[in-house]
Design a protein around this nucleic acid. Sequence first.
RNA 1: GCCCGGGUGGUGGAACGGCAGACACGGCCGCCUUAAAAGCGGCUGCCGCGAGGCAUGCGGGUUCGAGUCCCGCCCCGGGCACCA
Length: 943
Amino acid sequence: MSEEAAADIPPYRYTAALAGEIETRWQDYWEAHGTFDAPNPTGGLADPGHPRAGAPKLHVQDMFPYPSGAGLHVGHPLGYIGTDSYTRYKRMAGYNVLHPMGFDAFGLPAEQYAVQTGTHPRITTEANVERYRAQLRRLGLGYDSRRWVATTDVEYYRWTQWIFLQIFNSWYDTDQRRARPIADLISAFEAGERPTPDGRPWGELSPVERREVVDGYRLAYISEAPVNWCPGLGTVLANEEVTPDGRSERGNFPVFQRSLKQWMMRITAYGDRLVDDLDTLDWPEPVKLMQRNWIGRSTGAHIEFPTGVAPIRVFTTRPDTVFGATYMVLAPEHGLVDRLVPESWPAGTKAAWTGGHATPAEAVAAYRAAIAGETEAERTAESRKKTGVFTGAYATNPVNEERIPVFIADYVLAGYGTGAIMAVPGQDERDWEFAEVFELPIIRTVRPPADFDGKAYTGEGPATNSGFLDGLGIADAKARIVEWLEERGVGQGAVTYRLRDWLFSRQRYWGEPFPIVYDETGLPIALPDSMLPVELPEVDNFSPRTFDPDDAGSEPETPLSRAKEWVEVELDLGDGPKQYIRETNTMPQWAGSCWYELRYLDPCNDKALVDPEIERYWLGPENTGDRDKPDCGGVDLYIGGMEHAVLHLLYARFWHKVLFDLGHVSSFEPFRRLFNQGYIQAYAYRDARGVVVPAEEVEERDGKYFYEGLEVFREYGKMGKSLKNVVTPDEMCEAYGADTFRVYEMAMGPLDVSRPWETRAVVGSQRFLQRVWRLVVDEQSGATRVVDEPASAQTRRVLHKVIDGVRNDMDELRFNTAIAKLIELTNAVTPLPATPREVAEPLVLMLSPFAPHIAEELWQRLGHSGSLAYADFPVADPALLVADSVTYPVQVNGKVRGRVEVAAGAEEASVREAALAAVGDHLAGRDPRKVIVVPGRMVSIVL
RNA sequence: GCCCGGGUGGUGGAACGGCAGACACGGCCGCCUUAAAAGCGGCUGCCGCGAGGCAUGCGGGUUCGAGUCCCGCCCCGGGCACCA
């Protein structure tokens, strides 16, 4: 800025420099006064003298960030500014508002940086956390200063480990539909109330056998099961972390199915409740739907089909179609296959069934080899011609004693249901296709409509070719056949889930260590709570051993396993000092974020996860007065991105429900209300060669884009380094101030809609704040322009209409329209020679949730001392919301032809008369057929 | 393929079934200024000199009245994908 230019700017103009000065000053004030600290009902954070002590509570939470090395760009704080504006409003409206923030700070980037540079992940993480906190502070976000948490804090992950032990030390009682302490299970075994798996009395089992039995019930357990092994990352991954084409979400390395010993969480036990309790939640429907689909509950039946060897158990959602089961299919990996396969092809084996092999065993081996060599992409390719091979074995359909052939095929998945199906080509499209390829009989057991000309018929209709089911509709037929199967002991109603148990261990350094040791039996032993936290040991090499990404046969090796003096430990677990081996896996990054809503409530408590009274205050269920539909409790508003619709939210719900079952929390859902904010995206530009050019330096001319004189081409996407289109909040604060940035982000559209960032439009928000500033402060003298004379009736009316509208908008998170109304009010007052105090004060208060610093400054200049954070939010006078007169638009045959102004309380008849008079020209002398008066709205005349 | 969202000016977006385009960006014009910036004021959906007509992805329907409700398409974004 040149000197002349600077001299021209009025000395008291609200410039970026002044904004910056005001903002720093108020941020210091808030920090010094703990302005946003919310009182707990009891304990160290209680404060009976607080202006909101005893007020109704409101817990608003953001999905906390991973503190990445890149810092924030302007897209990240969108939701944070939203919750900040909302909580500032609610605080002024009388609520005791809890608005905390923290960091999800375990994770791969810090560890990978550590691997490359040798810098301890804690150093990197803490530096990033500091940077984030500084950036968030610069935006004026009003968090409770005493409640910051980071999942990497030892005092935090101590409780993550404690929760793990709670889960490890409990089992799911399917009769009571809840988790219970493992001690209850052991008592039941000891008392003989529950039979052991092999029927022997409990007393006859050896100590190791007893432990193995009990371990089989735990909600956290070790299993040797097929898992997703990623040699390129050197770690196993949860199903949720593997992309549909069989690669790692991080790093895009190939992932292989390998049988490995890993920690699992029995989330499937909660499948029903995780689905059913969605109904109690105020969440966006698409998110609920995604969770329902992910859990994938289907109801049907298990049916047993006898063979010469052992019965084949299938799961079907359509037991009513069992008369149409003309063959069976097992997953190639199914355990029964090898036992079923006979020496040679039985008589009547069709040529198409053998794959050209001389014996069933050869055919099965060849088929298995063929599909093992296929990539995931090949298996799911769209051509999808059904493949498979006959096992040489037959099973018997229990309803009609028909002998039906048993196949293996890759369209049946080992991991779903029982890994075996009864194939009913008449009512299943996949089975129909397979039946066509292998020349298998097709029997319709549901009669399609007369005009049906397709193949498999999956719709509603009466049963046919189905013996005693004939004529029944699908639902009735299902009920009847399940009854029949159960009577004969060959089947029973059943529910299965797509959801799998959660793979909970990772071969990483930068995560929570398991509070688990092993003795000489190799069975896991929980450490007592008194030995928590189990701290991460220092190591030289932070990396798991990684392998050639395609080396499926490699074995995981964890970083912690190399810390020998940590791994091998002498402990006294109640039976004297003994040698133990520590668990060397760590928990996945999800662990810390599964319960952070609880730690915010009572962050300094070193006796308990959270004081029950404090949990009940902030998260406890409200009394609905309806015993059958209890309130779920939980965070009152949880805002974050759609990308966490399934994983984070599902895992967090699961943990919360376990803690509820065990009596540690009173709420049975963690997040009562969820809101997904949109994303701020940005344009990026590539030149003719496809190389990305810096977006900041691109110029637009006549709808075309140029960089260094050459035309470049625009695309729309995420903001990021690689697209050279990052805009940071720091730059915006520097150029306009934090308040302008905040107002712009909230004004640019509804919070849940994604939109492109446009820096040049930010100036509009700055102009708005400058106009508000000028209403209160004279730019030349710095003196106040506010007068105590009352506002005109008209101005007053505008004010109260705006107050009413803004309150409604704020309650519904419609910040963009709230700001539009504040601009309208400002524009209405701008032409006045001086600003009436009765307008200036409410305007400043209403502006304060969005632009808190300038509002505090103006509030002070209006003669108030201290912060306005707890000032009363303006309330509209209902008397001023009803106008004296109403202007009615008058429609003739649906088109507006005129308007009339009548007194507000005018009779309908007089409105009608006035309307007819006003559009006399358009009536062409005809009598209207109909006149509709919508009181207060409009008049519609039909000729 | 199935399931969700969503299509409104040059742009971001407003609109309890009731005057389509609030508010803002951009653009144009004016005032102020030696000049420029800032500021202030006016105009700005399309066609038309005008009266007026046409406009919310396309085609139907319900209604006195449809961006909004119903039916059938098209396009864009997202999720799931041989789940028995």
